[in-house]
Design a protein around this nucleic acid. Structure first.
Lengths: 205, 205
DNA sequence: AGTTATCTTGCAATGATTGCAAGAAGCCTT
DNA sequence: AAGGCTTCTTGCAATCATTGCAAGATAACT
């Protein structure tokens, strides 16, 4: 890579990591980040597409060496439903650890006009595909093992994923419908229970 | 009401109705709306809190005399589950008719600093409470009639509502995970099927 | 008719994002 | 090593939604 670009990326990632560790993305200006990195504001857009794009890159780097959250859920022993329950819990942990990044995965905005924004959108979609592929595989295994009734694994995985996203979104409502962490856990458990029951094989009559 | 305020509200609602009938909210500037209404840009914020707030008020007025969407779903004959299926369909129809307003109900942003924005947030929360109250009542009736297993109606209503929101949100994704109207229908049907099955009373063993 | 309260306005500002021309740095070829 | 070409960064002005505030006009009240 061109050393100038590498220097700019490194400086911004470093500055972003430092600033975002202490303050929320909304509380930080692009002016501040650029000043901390010693680059122009426009470099943020050229390199990452947006302020949120820089934040996503910071989180992606943090996650890179630590994918325990979802890995453990899908690798655990037990039935397919056990793994789905565990995946839901892991998804919540992931959300609580990286709420802004999660939001970009679950409810992405338009990528903007910069190439880096479009690249970010592609990376986010890929991350969702990877996580959903595991859900699909788990559902398929469950159906094949007779643990789950004959549902379309792809479609059902999308439903589960959308349900979890809908529940997490209640955490950032600005009104009395907002759910705190305990409320999210309860709703996730309730959702998992109803969904899991709905996926059980029907008894023969 | 102060006649000056009434005039400003009427002018802006009129201008908003005309402009939003032809073009999407994102495609219109506050400058354009204010010019069309013959008022200052600041009046939009004083009266509605934001551009989205004006749009919400326009939709609320349109809906006011026409609540068929959700009314029919909850009033139809049949089991509680029939009504829940119908409510899901009605919810999709409602979303397709008023996507931007729906988005404010399902995923509201921070209300901003204007009093009118806070009032809007309260109205949106109330609308969600009203719609969810019907869902709660339908679930309660189902449990009491033995049609549904003993779930917490309030909690389950929140899960259903969050699930539908999560599914609708797939319609505005900017990547290949996006679902068109047909895809939303399929996912909604799949979700309703799994959830409904999961809510059935467990057979005695 | 005078006073007080409310409403609207013009204006400057904030912050994220965008486009673009100019200059510097790096790469490649000779 | 030098020259030409490509890529990267920058400064700057701009767009747009939103915000705050002082000033003036309008309406209500006494």
């Amino acid at each position: 890579m061109d050393p100038r670009k590498a220097r700019t990326l490194a400086a911004l990632l470093s500055a972003g990591e430092e600033i975002f560790r202490k303050r929320s993305v909304d509380d930080v200006t692009v002016e501040e980040i650029a000043a901390r990195a010693g680059v122009a504001v426009g470099s943020i857009y050229n390199a990452f597409g947006s302020k949120a794009g820089l934040h996503a890159a910071v989180v992606e780097r943090a996650i890179e060496g630590n994918r325990d959250h979802m890995d453990h859920a899908y690798q655990r022993e037990g039935s397919a439903l056990d793994r789905i329950y565990a995946a839901a819990d892991a998804y919540l942990s992931f959300y609580l650890s990286y709420p802004d990044y999660f939001r970009m995965l679950a409810f992405p905005q338009a990528p903007g006009h910069y190439a880096a924004g479009k690249e970010l959108a592609a990376r986010l979609a890929r991350a969702v595909h990877e996580q959903n592929a595991r859900l699909v595989a788990t559902l398929r295994e469950g159906v094949e093992a007779g643990e789950l009734r004959a549902v379309d694994p792809q479609e059902t995985a999308t439903v589960l994923w959308a349900t979890w996203n809908g529940i997490m979104s209640l955490h950032w409502r600005p009104d009395d419908l907002r759910q705190d962490e305990a409320g999210l856990r309860r709703l996730l458990a309730a959702a998992s229970d109803v969904l899991a029951t709905g996926l059980l094989p029907r008894p023969r009559s």
